[in-house]
């Protein structure tokens, strides 16, 4: 028995070691390969003589703006309706629950195909930033609804009762009491969703094209994003540039994750829920 136990322990330790090595190896490899190649030309160049990720920066910002401008208001409003107006019960809520859960689990390439067939083909927009942005909005919508629902549900019932008991209307209760109390969780969820937009690639291959060498002129232009640049560079022999772009993307995603937890804490602090 004793032997079995210590063998088990060793197996678990080895497994943990492999996990750690994988994690560190990926990050370290990317950093080592990529950091040296980071240059002004790569970051901000005009793509005349050497590759640049400036078009991808612009594309990314536009995609984030479009996706969040669409998905955040619609998602948050839907969640408010479900939680505050239907008590999160009933048939409609069940259906939406199942739909959002299913949608959240669909591989992103399927959203990409949808966006391709609708925006690129049916609408005749061709590859465009706007088509990609809308597709990404649809992709992050379920997550935003779900996490906003969770945040609203976690607001103590006593606060709503307290507000109603003072003669406040439902709308005032929602906007002055419930939403501020839930805002930490909601903002965190939005930032994490933005993280998905920043790192998404499959959807974009099918919707914005992969025009890596031109800053998009307007929202109907095709474009690129950081993740697409990595794919393009790697498959066209610019391996070091691909690694350097990965470093940039990695930094962005880590920054967004830190921001998400930081802002959640900050909002809690400002309302006094945490000291």
């Amino acid at each position: 028995m004793r032997k079995l136990y210590s063998a088990l322990k060793i197996i678990c330790l080895v497994a943990l070691g492999i996990t750690l090595i994988c994690l560190v190896a990926v990050i370290a490899y990317v950093l080592i390969k990529g950091t040296g190649k980071l240059s002004f030309d790569l970051l901000f160049g005009d793509y005349k003589s050497s590759p640049s990720i400036l078009p991808a920066f612009v594309g990314m910002l536009e995609l984030v703006a479009i996706a969040s401008l669409i998905a955040v208001p619609i998602g948050v409003a839907s969640a408010i309706f479900l939680v505050e107006y239907t008590n999160n019960k009933g048939k409609l809520v069940r259906i939406i629950q199942v739909a959002t859960e299913t949608l959240a689990g669909i591989p992103s390439i399927v959203y990409g195909l949808f966006g391709y067939l609708i925006f690129v083909v049916a609408f005749g927009w061709g590859y465009s930033i706007i088509g990609g942005g809308i597709t990404l909005a649809i992709m992050i919508l379920p997550t935003i609804v779900r996490s906003t629902q969770e945040s609203l549900l976690s607001v103590q019932g006593g606060l709503r009762e307290g507000s109603y008991a003072l003669g406040a209307s439902k709308v005032r209760t929602i906007f002055k009491i419930v939403l501020p109390s839930a805002s930490g969780g909601i903002v965190t969820a939005i930032i994490l969703a933005i993280g998905r937009v920043v790192s998404e690639s499959a959807v974009l291959i099918l919707t914005i094209g992969m025009v890596v060498n031109k800053v998009p002129q307007n929202l109907l232009s095709p474009g690129t994003s950081l993740a697409l640049d990595i794919y393009y560079f790697a498959s066209n022999g610019y391996r070091d540039e691909a690694a350097a772009t990965s470093v940039v993307l990695l930094v962005f995603v880590i920054f967004l994750n830190l921001l998400a937890s930081g802002i959640g804490k900050l909002i809690k602090k400002s309302t006094g829920e945490e000291k």
């Binding site: 006593g158 606060l159 009762e161 307290g162 507000s163 501020p180 309302t271 829920e273």
Partner: peptide, 9 residues
């Protein structure tokens, strides 16, 4: 109410 319910403000 039984449980004090100050608003988080």
């Amino acid at each position: 109410f039984q449980k004090p319910n100050p608003f988080p403000m």
